[in-house]
Simulated assay, not measured.
Amino acid sequence: MRTATIETTHDDAALVAAALAPDNTSEMTTTTDGDRVVTRIERETTSGLQSTVDDYVVNVDVAERVVQTANRPTNHNT
């Protein structure tokens, strides 16, 4: 079994983790610790692990952007 643990920091780690949850496979666990999102990935093969890590990194980037956009104040001219 091959494993990788990825830790990232975010202003709203819980929200980023929640945004990632739907994309997690059964070989992945994601937790939060303060401002950190910690994801452990287990795969049978090195190539499978690399592919899952690559996908996860893209998903983290998208989740962070979505959270930042959602938390951005808006100016509505009414």
Score class of each variant (00 low, 15 high):
residue 1 M to Q: 12
residue 1 M to P: 12
residue 3 T to A: 13
residue 3 T to W: 07
residue 4 A to I: 10
residue 5 T to M: 14
residue 6 I to C: 09
residue 7 E to S: 15
residue 7 E to C: 10
residue 9 T to E: 15
residue 10 H to D: 06
residue 10 H to G: 07
residue 11 D to R: 15
residue 11 D to C: 04
residue 13 A to P: 07
residue 13 A to H: 10
residue 13 A to E: 08
residue 13 A to Q: 11
residue 15 L to D: 08
residue 15 L to I: 11
residue 16 V to S: 05
residue 17 A to Y: 06
residue 17 A to I: 08
residue 18 A to S: 14
residue 18 A to H: 14
residue 20 L to K: 10
residue 20 L to D: 04
residue 20 L to F: 05
residue 21 A to W: 05
residue 21 A to I: 02
residue 21 A to Y: 05
residue 21 A to Q: 14
residue 22 P to S: 09
residue 22 P to L: 11
residue 22 P to H: 10
residue 22 P to Q: 09
residue 24 N to S: 08
residue 24 N to Q: 11
residue 24 N to K: 10
residue 26 S to D: 14
residue 27 E to T: 08
residue 27 E to L: 04
residue 27 E to W: 02
residue 29 T to F: 01
residue 31 T to M: 06
residue 31 T to V: 12
residue 32 T to I: 07
residue 32 T to A: 03
residue 33 D to A: 09
residue 33 D to N: 12
residue 34 G to S: 08
residue 34 G to E: 09
residue 34 G to I: 10
residue 35 D to K: 09
residue 35 D to F: 00
residue 36 R to S: 09
residue 37 V to Q: 06
residue 37 V to T: 09
residue 37 V to S: 04
residue 38 V to C: 02
residue 38 V to R: 10
residue 39 T to F: 02
residue 39 T to N: 04
residue 40 R to T: 15
residue 42 E to H: 08
residue 42 E to A: 14
residue 43 R to P: 01
residue 43 R to G: 01
residue 43 R to W: 03
residue 44 E to W: 01
residue 44 E to A: 13
residue 44 E to D: 14
residue 45 T to N: 06
residue 46 T to Y: 09
residue 46 T to C: 05
residue 46 T to G: 09
residue 46 T to L: 13
residue 46 T to I: 11
residue 47 S to R: 15
residue 47 S to M: 13
residue 47 S to K: 13
residue 48 G to F: 07
residue 49 L to D: 07
residue 51 S to D: 11
residue 51 S to Q: 13
residue 51 S to G: 08
residue 52 T to H: 04
residue 52 T to N: 07
residue 52 T to C: 11
residue 52 T to M: 10
residue 53 V to H: 04
residue 53 V to D: 01
residue 53 V to P: 03
residue 54 D to Q: 13
residue 55 D to R: 15
residue 56 Y to W: 11
residue 56 Y to E: 00
residue 56 Y to V: 03
residue 56 Y to L: 15
residue 58 V to P: 00
residue 59 N to C: 05
residue 59 N to F: 03
residue 59 N to P: 00
residue 59 N to I: 00
residue 60 V to Q: 05
residue 60 V to I: 13
residue 61 D to K: 14
residue 61 D to T: 12
residue 61 D to L: 10
residue 61 D to R: 15
residue 62 V to M: 07
residue 62 V to T: 08
residue 63 A to R: 05
residue 64 E to C: 00
residue 65 R to P: 00
residue 66 V to C: 03
residue 66 V to S: 01
residue 67 V to C: 01
residue 67 V to F: 01
residue 67 V to H: 02
residue 68 Q to V: 02
residue 70 A to M: 14
residue 70 A to F: 07
residue 71 N to K: 15
residue 71 N to R: 15
residue 71 N to A: 11
residue 72 R to K: 12
residue 72 R to Y: 00
residue 72 R to L: 06
residue 72 R to M: 06
residue 73 P to D: 00
residue 74 T to I: 11
residue 75 N to A: 07
residue 75 N to H: 08
residue 75 N to M: 08
residue 75 N to I: 11
residue 75 N to G: 01
residue 76 H to A: 06
residue 77 N to S: 09
residue 77 N to Q: 11
residue 77 N to W: 09
residue 77 N to V: 13
